[in-house]
Amino acid sequence: MTFLGDTELSALRLSLAVATRSVGFSLLPAIAIAWLLTRRRFPGRTLLDAFVHLPLVLPPVVVGYLLLLLLGARGPIGQLLNDYLGIRLVFSTTGAALATAVMSFPLMVRAMRLALEGVDTGLEQAARTLGAGPWDRFLTITLPLMLPGVLAGAVTAFAAGLGEFGAVITFVSNIPGETRTLPLALYSALQSPDGDALAARLALLSFSLGLGGLMASELLARGLRRWLGR
């Protein structure tokens, strides 16, 4: 490939890997939290709601710092993970994915909530009277009907995850081939005296990925809605 050099390709590959894994981390918890927040009334609901949305309002550096405190090599959870499971998050791609997942979690939950609010609870009641238990109802009625929203949320989170900067660089640093995703590579290019062309190419790449992702999400959701007969 003439346009993309090794640096760009490596950054692109890492960004894709980090975004994919972060969506993998956050998808199920986001559905669960969204369900709790829309369908259940319990003490502490408002607190949970606020907590989930914190990454939207906190500086990303703060999120990265908190992750470092908790999951760093000497953090309470990080130490356990390292000692018992041999998992090291700091300076690793997985760590970058986790930081990205935390940052995009509110986006994901918002999309899932919107989707869930659009599902008529009357249909779930109808399924109940037809003999469907809670999981059965969720898997055959609720989930398929909220699928367009789930998909939109996942694609948006994926597109946002491609470009997560602050939390990633704070938590897992900027290591080529390990945590240097597109924005981190762009940042490094801007720091070096002859990196202007590289920076421009990386910026263009980010731009195209973001645009393509959002458009794909919209088209997919439209197709799904048609399939669902709505």
Partner: peptide, 10 residues
């Protein structure tokens, strides 16, 4: 049988 039928659209 509900007033509004409540058929599953999918």
């Amino acid at each position: 049988v509900f007033q509004d039928a409540r058929l599953f659209p999918h």
